[in-house]
Every structure is written in structure tokens, then in C-alpha cells.
Design a protein around this nucleic acid. Structure first.
Length: 559
RNA sequence: GGGCCCAUAGUUUAGUGGAUAGAAUAGCGGACUUCGGAUCCGUUGACGGGGGUUCGAUUCCUCCUGGGCCCA
């Protein structure tokens, strides 16, 4: 419906894109469905904004609007009911799961690095955000027609693993390892982090690893395989999939080429036996490329990975969905790529997110043994969902587990994605366990209710999708719902432009609120306006489903 | 020590130049013998502080305070 407003304003002499950026949704819905603030135009015309609004409102003659009126310096548009219904319902009905999609990104390739947990450590909430946000961004981008490749880039190389190998050699216990390998490695990690002696031993073992020492490699491979198994389980529970599983270790043999390249472009400097790239003049400090003992660092591996990906995927954009604590690292990485002469450094973007902090407001530290295990969070949330489900006698026993899992997922995904990604968040299990109000389960519940109506025997017997007849006899509550539904495509684009899934999360919630308001006050089955309301219920459930899918939340028809 | 980020009701937060700052939760008070009460309606309650830019600042700039992160 925004397009109708934009074309009605073409007489202002402003360009289409100017108008588009100015047209807004009034804060108070009683003021109108769309609004055009005249400040900018008035400045151009050197006239009073209030006068400009008055003139404009008078001159817009269109049967697409019920009313166009000037309120102070605003021109407010009230969309006609007939046009609103005619132009909102059919696209949703015909496009179904594709409603809101577009071909905006046709022929454009996007690579998204996401999740990227460290091996030999439990999958904690630290990597939850990257996983969930990256997953949603991938879905949004491909919905808009981009060709997306998601890469899970494991932290599987570096001195910490040398340290862990040393620790495992001395403290490892086969029985405990067999029983729960990750837990055992985690205990060892916490133990050795307390002792200074492992710093040196760790460096030595990592050196052996980099040189391809058999014993070092054997243990490292063992760590990696048990980790992958553990991660697989978690991704399965989260219903997150990757196109590519890679890792830092894939690039440790490609270090020489990177070092050569840096040398050739005269970017390498020696400093106290180590090799660095000096970025002081860009205000980015110094980037350490190789330690004095010859060990490489992850900037170096990331450089190799970036070059490799450009060659392999030919991306138009590469998104690194990684926490904000890595900001400096990515600024340095992109700067070095630029200095190496790769113009596509401009196409790389670090989509950062705030951290989960523990209850005393500090970063969760693996070293101090304060990690919160993702598995536990999933289990606890599921358990709570299960308790609620058992209360509903209607739910067959063999369905309970499936539904509890879906509800837990909705709770966790939505609980994370509704927040602006840049903010730090205090991790509070209570929040994930909440099922009322602004929560994932509320959204699923809303969807299930809508579906439930559609499954009831109605007076109208026919196909809802292709009736082509739209009632004009509907009230304000129904209109608000329709207007909201019509905005979904704009919302998806907005979320993509900002790389912010929370825009879709907020939308889904607002839509659910409007639907529940409608649900409460408007009987559907058997009402005088049954057909229209059935259609409205149908399209509401469809759009809600589409929004949830973009967040990575699988929908449940019943719960 | 240097740099980056954040600050909105008791709590978790949306809004990012414009019309009365929007929710959720907790508290209080209500609704429906009805399509699923994980619902709906009402009510109390907020832009950290000082300066600046602007016709207009929660939003932009600057200083301060508080918190977080990174680098050395």
C-alpha cells in the first residue's frame, strides 16, 4: 500500500526515492495509515510546512484513499477499505509461503560466516547468538533472492589446543573421556588454566602440531571428531544447517602464501622477532601475523580464508556474524585485505552482536568454568514446555515430545532475536523460560489458534485462496490487521538492509497482538461476515508463518 | 594507558531528527457459560547528567558519570 501513497505524492516534484524515505507510519494509528511530513518539502519551497500540507492534501485526488487530510505539517493518508482488501489479500493468498519474498538479490552471492564454535569446548551461549542471528540473516537474504552460502568456521587451531593436548596427556582419563568427552576436556581446560606451567608446554605442543607431529595430530583429531559429534547434535536440535563446515585448521598449510603476499606488498615488519603489520596510521594498532616462535595467529588464517572464499564463491558480499568483541580484529583484517590491493575488502562486513553477560554483568569465561551449556538450556526449556503440554489433555502422548521441542525452540530463538543485536544482554534463564507476553510461544500459540479456526466446519464451503470476492464491510480492528499484513514485504527489506532480524521479530509480535485482539472480539465461524473473516484468519496465519520462518522458528500447526 | 560499544518505567526492551516515547513483565483492577485463558481489556510507572547544533533532539556533536568489550 506504500506504493499507492508514493505515487500520489509524485506531484510534489520530489524524486520517488526521496518520497519513499520520507513516507512514514504515524505513531498514532488514528491519524492515518501512512503519513507524509512536509518539513523537507517546505524547506525546498521556502513555505510554511502547515500550508504545504494543506495544499497537498487538497490537491491529491485519488479513489485509492478514503481520506487524505492535513494535520498540522503532516499529510495523512487513510487507505480505502476496498483497495486495501483487494491489494492485500490476493498476494498473500496466491504467494503463500513466498509472500514477502522478492528478486532483489538476483544473481548476487552472499557468504555468511556464522556460529563458529571452538572445538574441544562445550557449545555455550556465547555461540548461540551468532548461530541464531546468522541463521536468520541467511534465511532473510535467500528470501530476497540472494544466493547464500553459510559457513560454520570452527575455531580448531591455535595455541589453546597445544595447551589442551598437554593437559590431556597428563590429566586425561580414558574412562571419563569415553563417558562424556567434552565435559572431560572442559574440566581439564579449567584445571590447566589455573597453572602457569601449561603456557610453555602448550606452546611446545602447538608447535609440534603445526609441524605435523603424529602424536599431536592424533590427539587433535580426536578432539575434533568428538566436538563435531556434539555440535551436530546441538545443530540438529536447533534445526540449523550449514552449507559448508570449515575451520581455521583448513588454512594452516596456506600460511606461506599469505606471508609471501604480505612481504611482496611490503606490509610485513619485524618486531622483537615477530612479524607484524603496522596499522598505527589508520588508528588500528598493530596486527600480529606470526609470533616469535613461528606460530601463526588467527588473523593470518582469516586472511587465507578470505582469499580462498573469494576464489571459491565469488561473493558480492561476505558477512561475518561474530560477536562485538572481535571488532578490532575484523577492522584489521579488512584493512590488511585493502592494503593488499583487494578491492573486494569493501564487500566484507562484520555484523557484530553484543555478548551475553552472566548475572554479575561480566563476560562468561570458559577459563573460569562459568560456561552455560547450550544443551542444558535446551533441556530445561523443553522440560518446562513439556509440563505445560501435559496439562492439555487434548495433546496425544506421542505428540508431546515433538511439541515441547518446537515450543522450546521458539522460546529460545525469539527470546534472542527480538533484541537489537548490538546490545549486551544479561543471560537470564527465566527470560528464556517465559511463555507469556512478548515470547516465542505466544507467537506459536497465535498461529495454532488461527489454524484451529480454519479447521472448524464453517458455513462457507470452498477454497479460501481463490474466491476473489472481498467484503468491504469490516471495522477498525480488522483494518489495522490488514494494514499490518500489507506491510510485511517492506519489513523484510528493512530487516535485510539493517541486517537486523529483530525488525522481523518485532513485526511478528505486533501482528500476533493485532490478531489476538481481532480474535477476541470477532467471532469468525458462523458470523455474518464469515467468508471475509476466514480469509483474514488465513492470511494472518500465513504471514505469521512466513515471519517465523525467517527467524528460523519452525511453526507448529498445533501445540 | 589507548580505542570501540552501550545507557529509555522496579526489570527486559521498541523507537534514531518531527505529531501524546510503544510494548512485555512484575503490581493493582477487570472480561468471556463463545472459534484453544500460553488470551483479551483497563491502570500505576521511563529517555543517566551538563553544554551545543536545529524551526524541532530520546535520536546528531561534545564533555561528564556508570557499565561492558578489545588492544598493550
Amino acid at each position: 500500500m506504500k506504493q499507492e501513497v508514493i505515487s500520489a505524492l509524485s506531484s510534489t516534484g520530489l524524486s520517488k526515492s526521496e518520497i519513499e524515505s520520507l513516507v512514514e507510519v504515524p505513531k498514532d494509528e488514528n491519524l492515518g495509515d501512512y503519513a507524509f511530513p512536509t518539513f523537507a518539502l517546505a524547506k525546498k519551497l521556502k513555505k510554511n510546512p502547515v500550508e504545504v500540507a494543506k495544499d497537498l492534501a487538497k490537491n491529491i485526488k485519488s479513489n485509492e484513499f478514503e481520506k487524505v487530510e492535513a494535520t498540522g505539517p503532516y499529510v495523512n493518508f487513510f487507505v480505502s477499505k476496498k483497495i486495501l482488501a483487494e491489494r492485500t489479500l490476493p498476494p498473500i493468498q496466491f504467494q503463500g509461503d513466498k509472500y514477502g519474498s522478492s528478486s532483489l538479490g538476483r544473481n548476487k552471492k552472499i557468504v555468511i560466516e556464522m556460529s563458529s564454535p571452538n572445538i574441544a569446548k562445550p557449545f555455550g551461549i556465547g555461540h548461540l547468538r551468532s548461530t541464531i542471528i546468522g541463521n536468520s540473516l541467511a534465511k532473510i537474504a535467500s528470501f530476497l533472492g540472494y544466493t547464500v552460502t553459510t559457513i560454520n568456521y570452527l575455531g580448531d587451531w591455535g595455541t589453546p589446543f597445544g595447551k589442551l593436548i598437554a593437559g590431556y596427556k597428563e590429566l586425561g582419563n580414558e574412562k571419563k573421556f569415553k563417558k562424556d568427552p567434552i565435559k572431560h576436556l572442559y574440566d581439564i581446560y579449567v584445571e590447566i588454566s589455573k597453572k602457569e606451567e601449561y603456557e610453555k608446554k602448550g606452546r611446545e605442543w602447538f608447535k609440534r602440531l603445526e609441524q605435523g607431529d603424529k602424536e599431536a595430530l592424533r590427539i587433535w583429531k580426536l578432539f575434533k571428531s568428538v566436538s563435531l559429534k556434539e555440535f551436530d547434535e546441538i545443530y540438529k536440535m536447533l534445526t540449523v544447517k550449514f552449507d559448508v563446515i570449515s575451520g581455521e585448521s583448513n588454512y594452516n598449510t596456506k600460511m606461506d602464501a599469505v606471508l609471501e603476499d604480505l612481504k611482496k606488498k611490503k606490509l610485513l615488519k619485524e618486531s622483537e622477532g615477530a612479524l607484524i603489520v603496522d596499522l598505527e596510521k589508520y588508528g588500528l594498532g598493530v596486527s600480529l601475523i606470526q609470533k616469535s616462535d613461528g606460530a601463526t595467529l588467527y588473523v593470518t588464517r582469516d586472511l587465507a580464508a578470505a582469499l580462498d572464499r573469494k576464489k571459491e564463491y565469488g561473493f558480492d558480499r561476505m558477512i561475518y556474524e561474530v560477536g562485538a568483541e572481535q571488532k578490532l580484529h575484523f577492522k584489521q583484517l579488512f584493512k590488511i585485505l585493502e592494503l593488499l590491493g583487494y578491492s573486494w575488502a569493501q564487500e566484507c562486513v562484520h555484523v557484530d552482536h553484543g555478548l551475553y553477560l552472566d548475572s554479575d554483568g561480566k563476560k562468561f569465561s570458559t577459563r573460569k568454568g562459568k560456561t552455560v551449556f547450550m544443551k542444558d538450556i535446551l533441556e530445561e526449556t523443553k522440560e518446562l514446555a513439556r509440563e505445560e503440554i501435559v496439562k492439555r489433555e487434548k495433546v496425544p502422548k506421542n505428540e508431546r515430545e515433538k511439541r515441547a521441542a518446537a515450543i522450546a525452540l521458539a522460546a529460545i530463538f525469539y527470546g534472542d532475536l527480538k533484541n537489537n543485536r548490538v546490545h549486551d544482554m544479561i543471560f537470564d534463564l527465566e527470560r528464556f523460560l517465559a511463555f507469556e507476553g512478548d515470547t516465542g510461544p505466544y507467537l506459536l500459540y497465535t498461529y495454532a489458534r488461527a489454524k484451529s479456526i480454519l479447521s472448524k466446519p464453517a458455513k462457507y464451503q470452498g477454497n479460501l485462496d481463490y474466491t476473489g470476492k472481498y467484503s468491504l464491510d469490516y471495522d477498525g480492528v480488522e483494518k489495522k490487521l490488514l494494514v499490518k499484513l500489507s506491510r510485511f514485504p517492506e519489513i523484510v527489506v528493512h530487516a535485510y538492509n539493517d541486517l537486523s532480524p529483530h525488525i522481523i521479530a518485532n513485526y511478528a509480535y505486533e501482528l500476533a497482538q493485532l490478531f489476538n485482539e481481532f480474535y477476541h472480539s470477532h467471532p469468525v465461524i458462523g458470523s455474518d461476515n464469515e467468508l471475509f473473516r476466514l480469509q483474514l484468519v488465513f492470511v494472518s496465519s500465513q504471514v505469521l508463518k512466513n515471519a517465523l520462518s525467517l527467524l528460523g522458528i519452525p511453526v507448529l500447526e498445533k501445540m
